[in-house]
């Protein structure tokens, strides 16, 4: 048996790169097809830059001027801010802004968490309850404020209820009382926002495995121990979101104040948001109004950045 080897069969054939017909390896960054057209993003970019960036920066510039919307203006440095921090009325507005923000956060979180814990497990009607308790959240704050304005009237239901209990001493003209009017606004806000906080906590509680709770209960942990050692650690991310979001919302409360008290009595319920509106748009003090808006913006931004960090930590913890 003879084996003939065709010498050509073993010859390696190298095609010089220049002569290759195969297409070059595709650029990884270039996809197979084009996704839309690049100019689809253009209207959005223009609108976002114009409405958010240009407007905000221009507003920040106005804050250092004495512009009144018409005619000449001068660059007056920090004069607007010196005026704000020397005016007891405006300092009161800063205080009221913080009071409403922190007050609403504390109360909505307490009530929201209690509702969430109460309806989280076992209740047969928990979805109906959730729908009902969340309902005020979707309504216009202005409309809600009118309902409460009626309740806080001197001859309204609240005083009527106090009279029924024999507590006539406590009856007040709630919305015209320098001490209590801000509390009336706070109650209105808390009533409307509790459902929102409850929903955030319900989402957090859904992530607590029932087995862990049962195990803790079998090991002899009481309700209180289970709450602090099982539930609270599990819903820590929800607490971070609910508190920071609540503060940011609370700092901008405006509609309820205008409807309930208009900032009165004698400026007792003015906040930075209502002062911005009054100075800039009622009095035409665009420069001074912008300075107030800048103070409010810096406070909001501080909490917004804080929120960004706490929610980012939540994502990192979730991945770990």
């Amino acid at each position: 048996m003879t084996v003939t080897i065709d010498e050509n069969s073993t010859r390696t054939l190298t095609v010089p790169p220049r002569a290759r017909r195969t297409p070059p390896a595709r650029d990884r960054r270039k996809p197979l097809i084009t996704y839309g057209h690049w100019w689809w993003a253009l209207p959005a970019i223009v609108l976002v830059i114009g409405v958010h960036y240009v407007a905000t920066l221009t507003g920040g510039f106005f804050a250092f001027t004495n512009w009144t919307g018409l005619g000449d203006w001068e660059f007056i440095g920090l004069d607007n801010f010196v005026r704000i921090f020397n005016d007891p009325q405006l300092l009161g507005a800063v205080w009221n802004t913080l009071f409403l923000a922190f007050g609403s956060v504390i109360l909505t979180n307490i009530f929201g968490l209690l509702f969430a814990l109460a309806i989280n497990r076992m209740l047969k009607t928990r979805y109906i309850l959730r729908t009902l308790i969340f309902m005020p959240v979707v309504l216009s704050p202005l409309a809600v404020a009118y309902v409460w304005k009626f309740i806080f009237q001197f001859n309204g239901p609240l005083n009527g209820f106090l009279g029924l209990l024999g507590l006539e001493d406590l009856q007040k003209v709630w919305l015209a009382d320098p001490t209590w009017s801000i509390w009336a606004i706070l109650i209105t806000v808390v009533w409307q926002q509790t459902g929102f906080v409850m929903v955030i906590y319900l989402a957090g509680l859904a992530s607590v495995p029932v087995e862990v709770e049962e195990a803790a209960a079998l090991d002899g942990a009481g309700i209180w121990g289970r709450f602090w050692n099982v539930t609270v650690p599990a819903i820590r991310p929800s607490i971070a979101i609910a508190t920071t979001l609540g503060i940011i919302q609370g700092l901008r409360i405006f509609d309820q104040i205008l409807a309930l008290t208009g900032g009165g009595p004698a400026g007792a319920t003015e906040t930075l948001a209502t002062e911005v509106y009054k100075q800039a748009f009622s009095l035409g003090q665009f420069g001074f109004g912008s300075a107030l808006a800048l103070v409010l913006t810096i406070i909001i931004l501080a909490f917004a950045i804080l929120q960004h960090y706490v929610t980012r930590d939540r994502d990192a913890a979730g991945r770990a």
Binding site: A44, I45, V48, I49, V51, H52, Y53, V54, A55, T56, T58, G59, G60, F62, A63, G69, R252, A273, V276, A280, F281, F286, G289, S290, A293, L294, L296, T297, I300, L301, A304, I305, H308
Partner: peptide, 19 residues
């Protein structure tokens, strides 16, 4: 740019936008 615009509070821009 979009993400930062979500965080940026709207109050300061209201006066220039109105004008």
């Amino acid at each position: 740019l979009v993400l930062i615009a979500i965080i940026l509070p709207a109050q300061l821009g209201t006066v220039p936008l109105y004008i």
